[in-house]
Nucleic acid binder design. Sequence first.
DNA 1: TGGTAAATGATAATCGTTCTCATTTGCATT
DNA 2: AATGCAAATGAGAACGATTATCATTTACCA
Lengths: 143, 143
Amino acid sequence: MTEPSSLKSAGLKSTLPRLRVLSLFEEGNERHLSAEDVYKSLLASGEDIGLATVYRVLTQFEQAGLLVRHHFEGGKSVFELNRGDHHDHIVCMQCGRVEEFYDAAIEARQKKAAAERGFAVRGHTLQIYADCTRVKCPNRVKA
Amino acid sequence: MTEPSSLKSAGLKSTLPRLRVLSLFEEGNERHLSAEDVYKSLLASGEDIGLATVYRVLTQFEQAGLLVRHHFEGGKSVFELNRGDHHDHIVCMQCGRVEEFYDAAIEARQKKAAAERGFAVRGHTLQIYADCTRVKCPNRVKA
DNA sequence: TGGTAAATGATAATCGTTCTCATTTGCATT
DNA sequence: AATGCAAATGAGAACGATTATCATTTACCA
């Protein structure tokens, strides 16, 4: 269940639209959602929400640290709940499935590469685009 | 000088707009250009080119393998000449300067991480967002 | 040199996202 | 529980990047 407390502690009034969006991320089965996904999903649940509100709320949640925004290819932003653990993504080019991974060696190397060139890392984005080789991929490609 | 041969061998008619765009990348001092950059730059050189043509040509060049497209943060696509060497980017959040780097260990680890999860890598995108710590950064941030 | 399919450029259209502004809501205070 | 007011909402306009449309022009081979 969504606790209004997480909104309060983020400095946000706990309004109905915000609670709905948050619980969608917390309870939904899909971890990575675009603004359009959120909007349609809430409309489908009979909720009456505006698209502008969805965009606003997602941005606020991102700034409050509740959500993390990703820029996958395709032009649209995708959000996921911030569980505190940084990770990167592998996106299946056939079925769109997104898998998360974390590799300490990669992280360390990035910092090193940046430092060697006179940069202080603030963040990074790493996506691997790949083909599922698993049977469950609906548009399976032979390895 | 731009050789029409590179267009021909890419299966593209060597038209004036295409030659102009290509030589801008080959002879210009800026490696990473957006469609808008290309358009304005050509207009400034007195060339008469349409924005639609610029977009079309850039996409064709990308498909032909002459250019590589990047999706840095900020919403717009950025292109650079394909010199055959894959590399990732460090983007300065203060001045926008883009530096290229390549780290074999990172590449290897990516392949490994993907394989372990049942994916065959097709491509990836890695950008490090950072602050210049060098004196020449116009909006310098203290390390 | 002409014919023809391909390429171009002006402009309309599209897509994701943000802005505007009149209306509604949360919530602290009577 | 009623009131007041700033903050939040929703509908729709506006926006920036990109793509589609279509009449006109161009490259290039017979």
